[in-house]
């Protein structure tokens, strides 16, 4: 087994976490955001494993298993939502999907750009006559 100090493992987990966080803050496409969230979750799980290994107890792994199942459930629902959102709004840009960002203060995460041509190629425009719910705006 490794003879690397456990702190290095934690450091790796920390770096991965921060990278994921940065990804969440930077990217605008919802899919990418979800992806980066997964990175963060994974990093947290790694931290658990490292801690568990340090103490030689199964608790770390147990936590990781819980975390994993939670990530699975979250991804399932999240992706379903993304699909639904896309089918309605034809756009996956988080800025455009938000409240429009009327008074954007510039600076930090990104400028308010109008809806980028992300949803350019429409896979399947289900537009007309959405029966259920309609516009629950």
């Amino acid at each position: 087994m490794a003879s690397v100090p456990f702190e290095y493992g934690l450091a790796v987990a920390g770096v991965l976490f921060v990278l994921g966080l940065t990804g969440v803050l930077v990217r605008r496409n919802l899919l990418f955001i979800l992806l980066c969230v997964e990175i963060m979750l994974n990093a947290a799980g790694l931290a658990f494993i490292v801690a568990g290994a340090r103490w030689g107890q199964p608790d770390g792994q147990v936590m990781f298993i819980f975390l994993l199942s939670m990530a699975a459930a979250e991804v399932a629902v999240g992706l379903a939502l993304i699909l639904l959102l896309y089918s309605r709004r034809k756009d996956l840009d988080s800025d455009a999907l938000g409240m429009g960002g009327a008074t954007t203060p510039g600076g930090s995460p990104g400028t308010a750009r109008p809806a980028s041509p992300v949803g350019a190629a429409r896979a399947r425009p289900p537009a007309v006559g959405v029966p259920q719910g309609g516009t629950r705006r």
């Binding site: 966080l21 803050l25 990217r27 955001i33 988080s94 409240m99 429009g100 930090s108 990104g110």
Partner: peptide, 17 residues
């Protein structure tokens, strides 16, 4: 305070961070 509510998810995430 209006800055804290601009409807952009990443801004909120940044706030959390």
């Amino acid at each position: 305070f209006r800055w804290t509510q601009n409807g952009r998810v990443r801004w909120y995430a940044a706030g959390v961070a």
